[in-house]
């Protein structure tokens, strides 16, 4: 099995990012990053809820917020939804990420009382603040209200940590995190299965193996007859 490399971010990394980003910005924006009174509620708070425990009901349906309280307010959610839809838009492969509950999933993720998720929480929360500040700085408008061109202009600057300019390096880590979480969540829905090409989770009387077209494409024969 191949697992994706999921960068885990420590608090110290976030503080480093904080410092680097703040240094590259004007004072007014930098203040938005301070973990003080100017930061939106929840930005620097940690999670105190408990998890679902070692014996949860495995057969019921869960929605974000069912097991632990969520974090994001309406404007944070709107920004995240806009960003998720830039990353995974409506197109011929499938619907937009926001219609598949991806922003709610990310909120559930950063609100979860487990170490990996807690490690991601500051990055996502601070990143949302950064995105909004960047959008206001460039276009005097909320990121969620920008047109495709405006959203694309910001995303192009932060979509690749390898090539992002120094002042965008840390924002690029935020983008990568949201992209990775969004992909995991998107492709684990029925619409996402269709988009990526997964077929299954349905009972069948027989297992026929790969179709002839696939065998021929790979130049192999079915050896179990």
């Amino acid at each position: 099995m191949t697992e994706s490399d999921r960068p885990r971010l420590s608090r110290r990394d976030v503080f480093k990012w904080f410092a680097a980003t703040a240094a590259a910005m004007a004072t007014s924006e930098a203040e938005l990053f301070a973990a003080g009174p100017l930061a939106p509620a929840g930005t620097s708070s940690s999670v105190s809820a408990t998890g679902y425990g070692t014996d949860p009901d495995l057969t019921r349906q869960y929605n974000p917020g069912d097991v632990w309280p969520l974090t994001l307010d309406a404007s944070q959610t709107a920004l995240l939804a806009a960003l998720c839809d830039v990353i995974l838009p409506a197109d011929s492969f499938g619907p937009a990420a926001s219609t598949l509950g991806i922003p709610g999933f990310i909120d559930e993720w950063i609100s979860a009382p487990y170490p990996v998720q807690q490690g991601d929480r500051p990055l996502v929360l601070e990143g949302i603040v950064w995105m909004e500040a960047e959008s206001q700085k460039r276009f005097q408008k909320s990121f969620a209200k920008l047109d495709d061109t405006g959203q694309g202009a910001i995303c192009d600057d932060i979509c690749n940590p390898a090539s992002a300019r120094p002042e965008f390096k840390q924002a690029a880590r935020f983008f990568l995190k949201v992209r990775s979480l969004s992909m995991g969540a998107y492709f684990s829905t029925p619409a996402g299965w269709q988009a990526i090409g997964y077929v299954g989770n349905t009972p069948s009387a027989t297992f026929d193996g790969p179709p002839l077209e696939v065998l021929q494409r790979l130049g192999v024969e079915q050896t179990v007859l």
């Binding site: 191949t2 697992e3 994706s4 490399d5 999921r6 960068p7 830039v86 990353i87 995974l88 838009p89 197109d91 011929s92 492969f93 499938g94 995303c155 979509c159 690749n160 390898a162 090539s163 990568l176 992209r179 990775s180 979480l181 992909m183 995991g184 969540a185 492709f187 684990s188 996402g192 299965w193 988009a195 990526i196 090409g197 997964y198 299954g200 989770n201």
Partner: peptide, 27 residues
């Protein structure tokens, strides 16, 4: 197999991609 929550494509295969291009790469 069934994609199960984790990102099905490692980040380094899809550097910089987003939008429909990203879905094409995932597929």
């Amino acid at each position: 197999h069934m994609p199960s929550g984790g990102n099905p494509v490692p980040d380094d295969f899809i550097q910089g991609a987003y939008g429909t291009k990203l879905k094409e790469e995932a597929r």
